[in-house]
Design a protein around this nucleic acid. Structure first.
Lengths: 347, 347
DNA sequence: CATTCACTTTTGATCGTTCAAATTCATTTA
DNA sequence: TAAATGAATTTGAACGATCAAAAGTGAATG
């Protein structure tokens, strides 16, 4: 046993042909049950594993999927990408798939990489993140019939008619739930701290807040209780100040970064009272400071994506069914929203 | 041109043999300069790209490296892994390498994956992170002569004699610089807020603080000014309280999470004064709240790792030189250490 | 008893590349 | 002039798997 076993060496050991051994692995139903058993025993004993390169050369399948790494922008919200990536890798692994990373600084660069990766690395498909309105990536991939699943809606006029599969989290439902919770605690003038209009994810999250308050506040009041700022703690603090000035007593935020800033402003405005602020993404920072936040079920999203992807890759070639769309409900994680930053802990 | 160009199709177009075209790509010096030029033109025009699977099958090289994803523990400090991963991917990409991810919940599981990945995916090597004393992973890989580079020292008794290559950041130098800076600002009783004794990285960072203060404080005083707690904002707050009780006026921390907690305690203890706290890792949270921190040059580390890895994979087979060890100096990033959490921002 | 059939196993070709060993042809050397 | 050298190119044989089609079983069918 000098070198690694191959199909031929295993077959020779059994007095069978390579193809029978191959069938035992890939199409067991074609093999005589008794033979199958013998083959399997020898495979297990010899530690034989099919060579990926040879298989790939013949089948044109690599069992490798591409995933683009974005330049790190905000490490606070980026933390959920971490969880997503881990969960994705883990789930793919369960089914014999692997993930190949690549870096790209823009969507255009990402598309350029597709060609490169498809041709040189024989990737079977891609997983897209950060989709936005007018995203060219989906179109490019569809034109070439490259399998892919997006984490995030396309944000086109009619998401449900989208020709490619996506999995997303219902941000709107999340902010609505957060707002409802604050209403239940007696708040009426609840502000929304989000991103500028151009952000589709932001608009979606804002809509949940708006819907929850539509019967409570007048449209004019709603308008004065919503601000859009870039993402970040400082921006959040600045935005919160404006909301406070407009009479807000509680704030629902589009991200934990914003919420962290807002939280501090509310605390300064009314010392002693735990700030009624709810963040988004339930990042470790939120957990650490004891801030309530809307948690995205990224693990569940990863599972769905893997399932859909497997359907694309392993399902029948003629798939006339429409592309799968999964919208997952987030979960509101309630904490005291005050925590150690407000009240020093005694030993 | 229905299907993808191959060596044979390109050769036919040129009236040459496949091998000449192959040589033009892999050993240009063997090809007549004029022929070379012609071949290159046709390659460029046809968009030919060598098929990775075929190449891999023949050469037993995949140009793919493995990277283990750890379960996300702390999203605050995990953010630097994000940057590292991105930088690594980017640098490898420049040289035609790719990274394959895999998830493992323990070192033992990681080792199990090695076998699997080496056999089925033909990975050329691995990049290790989170090395610790008595790490079995390095040994396993060395025994099988699998190329790998570690990000992090082995933390054995004599790191410089380590038989395998590593790149690490000199944490000791970082905390020493941080401590020196605080000394320069007039502080004397500077505390160290780190992890329990068992952490080697923590002990290393502690040693820098100790060295910087050795001529300033008595051993007994040093002892009372150092605490070890698990990582996290709450732990940091608790630890800081203890240091304050022992008379500390400034604190050097082993992580930004700890520093964030400590920062708040100092602010409560002496309102109005920006807290003299320095964190470690320079995470986005530190930047966001305006806290000073010791920045790890992860991009530089990634570059070194890629360089060493390329040496292992592409260098002469007989490499008798000792394994490369690179210790990089971190950089102290000074901020006001107060920021928006302390002073609400006016619009 | 020959034919058909289902089931199981085998054979030959192929995927696209690189290695190792020819082969060609012009040029230098003995 | 024959032989040796050298550079440039070509040929045959892998690498290890899967596909497609053929061949070998034995039982059921007419």
């Amino acid at each position: 046993m000098a070198s690694r076993p191959t199909l031929v060496s295993v077959a020779a050991q059994l007095g069978l042909s390579r193809q029978t051994v191959s069938n035992a692995i890939n199409a067991p139903e074609r093999v005589n049950p008794e033979t199958l058993k013998r083959v399997r025993e020898v495979i297990a004993a010899s530690g034989y594993r099919p060579n990926a390169a040879a298989r790939q050369l013949r089948t044109r399948r690599s069992r490798n999927l591409g995933f683009r790494l974005f330049p790190t922008v905000d490490g606070i919200n980026g933390a959920i990408m971490d969880r997503f990536l881990h969960s994705l890798t883990e789930n793919l692994q369960l089914h014999g798939y692997r993930m190949t990373l690549f870096a790209a600084s823009s969507d255009r660069a990402e598309i350029d990489s597709y060609g490169e990766l498809l041709e040189t690395a024989d990737l079977d498909g891609f997983i897209l993140t950060g989709t936005h309105h007018g995203d060219e990536r989906g179109r490019w991939l569809m034109e070439r019939e490259v399998p892919f699943v997006a984490f995030g809606r396309p944000w086109s006029t009619d998401d449900s008619g989208c020709p490619y599969p996506w999995v997303d989290v219902d941000g709107r439902a999340g902010t609505a739930e957060a707002t409802a919770d604050l209403l239940g605690r007696g708040h009426r003038r609840i502000g929304f701290l989000g991103w500028p209009e151009s952000s589709e994810v932001g608009a979606n999250r804002r809509s949940g807040w708006e819907a929850a308050l539509s019967g409570v506040l007048a449209p004019g009041e709603l308008k004065s209780l919503s601000v859009g700022v870039p993402d970040g703690i400082r921006d959040g603090a600045a935005g919160a100040l404006k909301l406070l000035a407009n009479g807000a007593t509680a704030i629902v935020c589009a991200s934990d970064s914003l919420a962290l800033g807002a939280s501090e402003q509310l605390r300064t405005a009314s010392p002693g009272v735990p700030p009624a602020v709810i963040g988004f993404d339930d990042t470790p920072v939120a957990a650490a400071v004891g801030m309530s936040s809307v948690a995205q079920p990224v693990e569940e999203a990863a599972r769905h994506i893997v399932k859909i992807m497997r359907g694309l890759l392993e399902g029948p070639a003629e798939r006339s069914e429409p592309a799968a769309h999964v919208l997952l409900a987030p979960r509101l994680v309630l904490r005291d929203s005050g925590g150690p930053l407000a009240t020093p802990i005694a030993l």
